[in-house]
Design a protein around this nucleic acid. Structure first.
Lengths: 209, 209
DNA sequence: CGTGGAAGTTATCAGCCGATTACAACTAGC
DNA sequence: GCTAGTTGTAATCGGCTGATAACTTCCACG
């Protein structure tokens, strides 16, 4: 549908399906996201989605791994741009700014959120715990924030993720408290972020329930 | 099954079903939590669960309202115990300590988490946004934290919620980084909390998938 | 008593969803 | 240009799940 009808290499098709899965799982979670919806977004048949990954569970796991990888890559890129002479506060600010890139890719952040809620799952649980600790270790060591600042960074990020999930930016225009809360997290760039997330692309109308 | 076979008033039964729904929705989310599982935990028939609330969606909404209410009641009780002469830092600490009560009731916190991820839902979205802002306003005004400290409190709480959802405490015994991250949030009482959450009751084995 | 209403169940159904199978279309390499 | 492997689809199926309907059990009260 939304994709081209060309024949692709399985690698390209795999990435296309993973991107679709990221959107669908991000919006509806593992149990709520159907392989049919993912197939429609990716522009392939439902059967192909299942066969390529073996099962819906394997697809979710792959989507989760991809999401975590994208998050840590984004943070790593932000730190790599610095010259290494910055203070802790400046490095923290650089990581915070890089969150803009993550928010632009709504599905990544929300898929990760849903993976968090599957901590009891024998497959997803160990995976997401290890990946999240990877992010913590990155912030603490590679970014040089230390334990306290790193945990503060993760906490703020989690509030941002949650705000995104519950679509707080959608009401920031009309609700002073929502705007104020978001403002405490982002300061001056709040308006731009609100505009960005409010206009963020969502699943095609035909796929809404 | 797990409940008594006595006949109850519809009010009592309603609360019993809501408590069961809190556990089931908390662990599996809205889409993943079945009315049958809720019925089994509550000790009634599946048909009765649906008929009492009209639909699964109405039941989830009721469970979400109950969860939000419990959270704000817990915070309100913590502030009410103070004599009003405390500093902002002391009031923040009192709220933090009250989180122990919330964690003891795993389902409440996790049901709220799942409601967050339904921000796009036309019924759940407006509800959870308003309730969450209620909590923010409480922390800011009634607890007197002000905007910055209140948002910091919410951020920390969200990291705690997420840690609970992904069962970080389960691996705190064997993973130094997990323990350190939790320690940054709770300080001295970390060990007690880890012990508490690790031993937390979960859904009956027969209901695991 | 006995009757009406509330509490609660059993049985059943229709729709959805993941998975499987069998088949079709295309392309690289000999 | 033939063929073998890869990309991809259509058709179908069985199990699960929310909902509905019809029935039962129990208690309060005249």
């Amino acid at each position: 549908m939304s994709a081209t009808n060309e024949r692709l290499t399985s690698e390209d098709r795999r990435e296309q399906i993973l991107a679709a899965a990221s959107d669908v799982f991000g919006e509806r979670g593992f149990a709520g996201g159907t392989t049919d919806a993912i197939a429609k977004v990716a522009g392939v048949s439902q059967a192909y989605v299942v066969r390529m990954f073996g099962s819906k569970q394997e697809l979710f796991i792959a989507a989760t791994e991809r999401a975590c990888e994208r998050v840590i890559d984004t943070f790593r890129a932000a730190i790599a741009e610095l010259d290494g002479e910055e203070t802790v506060v400046e490095r923290l600010a650089a990581l915070g700014r890089s969150y803009v890139d993550l928010i632009a890719d709504r599905g990544t952040l929300l898929t990760m959120m849903h993976a968090f809620t599957l901590g009891h799952d024998p497959r997803v649980g160990p995976l997401i715990r290890e990946r999240y600790l990877d992010i913590y270790r990155f912030a603490r060591d590679e970014a040089g924030l230390g334990p306290e600042v790193a945990s503060h960074f993760l906490a703020t990020g989690m509030l941002i993720n949650t705000g995104m999930a519950m679509r707080l930016p959608d009401i920031a225009d009309s609700d002073d408290d929502a705007r104020e809360l978001l403002g405490c997290l982002w300061g001056d760039s709040t308006d731009a972020l609100v505009a960005m997330t409010t206009a963020a692309p969502i699943l095609p109308e035909a796929l809404r329930r």
